[in-house]
Simulated scan of single mutants.
Amino acid sequence: MTQLPQPFATTQAVELQNALLAGDTDRARSIEELFLPPAATSPERRKARLDHLRVVLLFCAHVHALDEGDTATAQLCESVMVATCSEKAIHAVAAGCLLHTGLETGTLHAEDHDQLAALLAWHDVSNTMKAVVTRIEKLP
């Protein structure tokens, strides 16, 4: 069977993840520039977008490593994430993951439900967004 080539964005995401985990910040920065949307015009918006990109890539690598039983790589991903990403970006991605899971399943365990509510409050999201969480059943 013929293997299709990986899309450019996919290969660059893997390269970025590898550069971050190897501590190659120069290479990581050059790859990150490829992902910045044109709307990221101010330095603050650029930094926020890059923070979110790093968190998503490192979080995915962390989860995959845990799934494969590779706790050393999972710990490395977590360490690099904490060292290179803002707390706000980490919380935003965590909230997004919890919100996605809750909306997809219709339920969240009480601890996750409370964490999602706290993260949304911390980010000062709109009441409309907070109301979405009330539609997710809180399990014991």
Rank of each mutant, 00 (worst) to 15 (best):
L21R: 05
D112G: 05
L108A: 04
R46M: 11
V82S: 02
A110L: 08
Q12V: 02
T10S: 08
L120R: 01
H52V: 03
A92P: 04
G23N: 14
H64C: 13
E33W: 03
G23F: 08
R27S: 07
P37K: 00
V63F: 11
A131L: 02
A92R: 01
L20M: 07
M129G: 10
T11W: 10
T25Q: 08
C97M: 12
I90G: 02
H64P: 07
T2W: 06
K88S: 00
D112K: 08
D114R: 15
P140C: 07
L103C: 09
H113F: 15
S79R: 09
E87Y: 00
V56M: 00
E137K: 07
A117P: 05
T10Q: 11
S79Y: 05
L120G: 01
A48Y: 03
V55T: 01
S79T: 07
P7L: 02
G96P: 04
Q6N: 14
A94S: 00
R46P: 10
L116I: 05
F59H: 04
V63W: 11
H52T: 04
H113K: 14
L139D: 07
T73L: 14
Q75G: 12
R54H: 02
V133W: 09
T105M: 05
L4M: 07
L99D: 00
M81S: 04
T101L: 14
A95M: 02
P5I: 09
A118C: 00
R49D: 14
A9N: 06
L57G: 01
T2Y: 08
V63C: 10
A117D: 10
A89S: 06
G102S: 10
I31S: 04
Q75A: 14
A110I: 08
R45K: 15
L120I: 00
G96A: 07
H113I: 12
V55Q: 01
I90K: 04
E111V: 13
L76Y: 11
G106A: 09
E32G: 03
R46Q: 15
Q115C: 05
A39T: 15
S42E: 05
E87I: 02
T128V: 12
V133S: 07
L76S: 13
T10N: 09
V132F: 11
F8V: 15
E87V: 01
W122Q: 10
R45Y: 01
R54Y: 00
A95S: 03
P140K: 04
A9S: 12
M1F: 14
D114N: 14
V80Y: 06
A74M: 11
T107W: 11
F8N: 13
R29Q: 06
F59I: 01
D24H: 08
R45T: 06
E137F: 09
P43R: 00
L34D: 06
P7N: 06
Q3W: 13
F35P: 02
H91L: 06
A39F: 14
R27H: 09
A95L: 00
D70G: 10
L116A: 01
H91E: 13
D112Q: 11
Q12G: 03
F8S: 15
T105K: 15
A39S: 15
